[in-house]
Amino acid sequence: MSATTAKKIDLEKYGALIALGALFVLASIIGWPYFIRPENLVNVMRQSSYTGIIALGMTFVIISGGIDLSVGAVAAFVASCGVLFMNWVLQATGGNEVLAILGGVSVMIALGFVTGALNGLLITKGKIVPFIVTLGTMSIFRYLSLQMANAGEFASQSQLYGTFGMSKIFEFTVGDQAVSLPVPVFTMLALAAILAFLLDNTRYGRYLCAVGSNARVAQYSAVRIDRVRFWAYAINGMCVGASAALLAARFNTVSTPNFGLGSELDAIAATIIGGTAMAGGRGSIWGTIIGVFMLQFIQNMLNMAGLSPYLQGVVKGIVIIGSVYIQKQRQ
């Protein structure tokens, strides 16, 4: 009995990882010889990381039984404000770039928190369902950014910020090629470690699952459900802020109509592929990371094989439905 149980749990735990491994092999074959190149793998990881960071916060929100459609718009809004602030600091201090970047990034994360908190308050105190609230704030923040920039873009005046966006750490060499971890990838993995730990080892994480599973039971069990939900959105907001800061640095500019466009759906897709239940109550941070990588692997491998982007979209849709179907079958 216990032996079979142990086996089952292992499959549940590592199934997604095995799938990712299989996909990696498949991608190496289909995307031969480009996919497997270290340079490409670094690219793929970096490409995943911006949505990935948002997906981490989204995982918390979805576990709590909610949804956040506003993340892409919020990213554009906070990035716009952050770059404006950065440019202002540059002028005020006569070109102190380090101070400007620190200030700008802080503003983005803080504003991310504020917007997340706004969503959280409307949902918990206003008693409006998350879908509606975030649908509303999605529109509000997207158009607020468009209004601010007159649908144009905010270019950062700091060259260093752009350099920061492309910077890497932990450089080492594979064969004759230098490989290193881009800062956004590092940030994503570090955040994932923190959030996964939070989810598994703290009261808050436990309460989050309880609220998502059955809010009434949680309420009767003396869990302050409003507070738990509020923080899910606030944490998500901070993740969005961090992602926006990194993405803005990558481009060193914020184009208000395009920045973060559609990232809410990618983040939700990655979260769901990672095994988090749409209905809430159950989810995994590392699963989400795997989901993010899977989506990007598939996209990259098909791109390398020269498949049209329209068909890539078709494959992506099939993968989303298929992975959830497999998870259902396993239960």
Partner: peptide
């Protein structure tokens, strides 16, 4: 089941 225990826990 409605207010006492979480069945998926």
């Amino acid at each position: 089941q409605g207010a006492g225990i979480i069945t998926t826990f």
